[in-house]
Design a protein around this nucleic acid. Structure first.
Lengths: 220, 220
DNA sequence: TTTGATTATAAAATCGATTATTCGGTCTAG
DNA sequence: CTAGACCGAATAATCGATTTTATAATCAAA
């Protein structure tokens, strides 16, 4: 097994980090909630040290608020912040998409088509929410992957997590959903046609509409 | 006492985090080095738990590399990455500066003038490197502060730390230094004149030249 | 010599227990 | 009443020791 297993195994710390990250993004904690560390310890069956290390990482990543001497809290949701996140997504993903279109090679085109196809298939089977989310994230990641900037990709990833925290709380809207799904296909077409201008505009619109959906997380 | 002290006191964890962050940015560790945790424990006189929590945070922040089961290492320096960081700084700080100029109020103008003045004074006394660095960071922070996006500010802060890790290793160049110092003053003028276009261009140039200085960290 | 297995050593990760701090209620002086 | 002092329970932070895993050093076989 020489070549494989080059990435270290999962530690308790990395496992609980990944798990908590997902649970936070998927809204399994209520916004503003104060995390009872010993309760988490029970709930996930991990020790204090790996748990605290994970919480520290999540705070540095922006999915938790850390207050010295008084533990960790789930950040509140705020319209203003959602707007900020969506704005930043438009700016950064637009930038990344432009660069990706200019630099993406044939292999990228193939992967993009594949990712879009997998997503489309998942669109059609409304069960398997979880799987759809995975493929959706992967599609958007593939789209900007060859932009050439690791920092840009890192920021985009972070913003996606923040954005999804809102979006996943919002009620679904089948009509808008269909439109957004269609846009995925159009994005691929524009990318393959190397139409920078068109792709950027569409991406901008795509995020704007997603933002309006995500606003639904502030239901009265 | 009531109103003040609203932020929790410093914990061992937060102290060692701040300290390590500075030491990393200031190049007190050699790039690529593997951190011996127990050695750090001795060197800084802290316990394992707070130390590990700080290391986890720094890894999430991007100032350390964490590899499961084999600890933490200081990221290597790479020309390509410095280029990426500088590019991102140009993009994001340009964006932030534009917004700041559009949204900054009279109070901002005052603080900007003050920050620039303090920095200029520090320029003139070449001793006190540390103080200059502090004021320099603060000036750039003030410049973009009212941009209206917390995420943008957050990313910029992160990029500054990354950038400075390179710059502080590079040999100083008094001539370029004087030019860069002069640009600080010009940036203030353009900002106060609400000259978005001019300010963005100057900021772009400012970062480009700083980048060339920072390239000196790759001495033969 | 190499290669691969084997063990000894060092280091990372984790646990269980201890210490320090906050939080909420209660009391007292003004 | 109300602001502040005080106390006890709850919880965050930290320590010291243990367990697990990687690293290196050693040796045997090809």
């Amino acid at each position: 097994m020489g070549i494989f297993e080059r990435k270290g195994g999962v530690t308790a710390s990395s496992w609980i980090y990944d798990t908590l990250r997902q649970d936070l993004v998927n809204g399994r904690f209520t916004a503003g909630e104060k995390l009872a560390i010993s309760a988490l310890k029970e709930r996930y069956g991990v020790g204090l040290s790996p748990l605290r290390e994970a919480l520290n990482r999540l705070a540095a990543y922006g999915l938790l608020i850390q207050e010295n001497q008084r533990g960790f809290r789930v950040p509140r949701l705020a319209r203003e912040e959602l707007g900020d996140i969506a704005d930043m997504r438009r700016e950064l993903e637009g930038m990344a998409l432009e660069r990706a279109i200019q630099r993406g090679d044939a292999e990228w085109e193939s992967e993009l088509l594949a990712a879009a196809h997998r997503l489309k298939r998942a669109d059609e089977s409304p069960e398997m929410e979880e799987e759809w989310e995975r493929l959706h994230l992967r599609f958007h990641r593939t789209l900007v992957a060859p932009c050439g900037s690791t920092w840009l990709l890192r920021f985009i990833e972070q913003l996606h997590d923040q954005f999804d925290r809102y979006r996943r709380l919002a009620p679904g809207n089948p009509e808008v959903r269909r439109l957004l799904d269609a846009q995925h296909g159009e994005l691929v077409e524009l990318a393959l046609a190397r139409n920078v201008q068109g792709a950027r505009e569409l991406m901008d619109d795509h995020i704007k509409r997603s933002y309006e959906v995500a606003l639904g997380s502030f239901a009265p």
